[in-house]
């Protein structure tokens, strides 16, 4: 960071750099509110702001493709799934005094350690790299695709295996719960009634996501 700043003038930042910093601050603030607010649904909505802010940061770093995928997957699907789960279980309006965890110091330690490790790795890896905003976009779909499927194929494939394992695990868990419910209730509704078939589709859906 300091090396890069030395060549590009640390004291006269460009508009993009200022915007990057400001959006970063907003994102950071939203993230803090997400974990500290006592209102469960508000936490999920602040998460939207956080993830959206990250997407804007990607955009400012010219990684357009990553930014839109971030919005598509995290804001459009993960947060919707979160809200769906909250609404299905318990989503009171107003504060939930019990929405707290005894592990908060452990969580804070893990979060700070993870953040420190990430910052250190990124600073170490990209110490003096500078993105030329006027040149060809370094994060366009084409560039991202080429580097993903040429240099990073192995991690990509490993990730897909991991996701497959999660998928299979979700199906196994949901089927086990269904079998237990069936033996507990004695009579087994064959799943032809709407009430019997909706839980199945729901768990399948969560598995696929």
């Amino acid at each position: 960071m300091s090396l890069a700043a030395a060549t590009h003038g640390f004291l006269s930042p460009t508009g993009v750099e200022i915007a990057f910093l400001l959006v970063g601050l907003v994102t950071f603030g939203a993230a803090i509110v997400t974990v500290t607010t006592r209102q469960l649904v508000h936490a999920a909505l602040w998460l939207v702001v956080t993830l959206g802010g990250l997407a804007v940061e990607y955009l400012l770093l010219t990684a357009e493709f990553i930014a839109w995928v971030q919005v598509l997957i995290y804001v459009g699907s993960v947060v919707v799934l979160l809200l769906f789960g909250l609404m299905l279980t318990r989503a009171p309006i107003g504060r939930s005094p019990d929405a707290d965890s005894g592990n908060r110091w452990a969580a804070l330690t893990v979060a700070v350690a993870a953040a420190a490790a990430l910052v250190w790795v990124v600073v170490d890896a990209f110490r003096a790299t500078w993105i030329d905003l006027d040149g060809p976009a370094a994060g366009s779909t084409e560039a991202t695709g080429a580097s993903l499927f040429q240099n990073w194929v192995l991690p990509f494939e490993a990730l897909s295996v991991l996701l497959l394992a999660a998928l299979v695990g979700a199906i196994v868990l949901s089927r086990k719960a269904k079998a237990e419910a069936a033996t507990a209730s004695g009579s087994t509704p064959s799943g032809s009634t709407p009430a019997g078939s909706t839980p199945v589709t729901r768990s399948e859906k969560e598995g696929t996501r």
Binding site: W68, G76, V80, M87
Partner: peptide, 25 residues
Amino acid sequence: IDAGIFFVLAVMGVGVLGSLMAGWA
């Protein structure tokens, strides 16, 4: 927009958040 399809589908997905917020609030 370079990644047009992704932009369009991503942003359309965000619109549904409005209905969710309305339904809950």
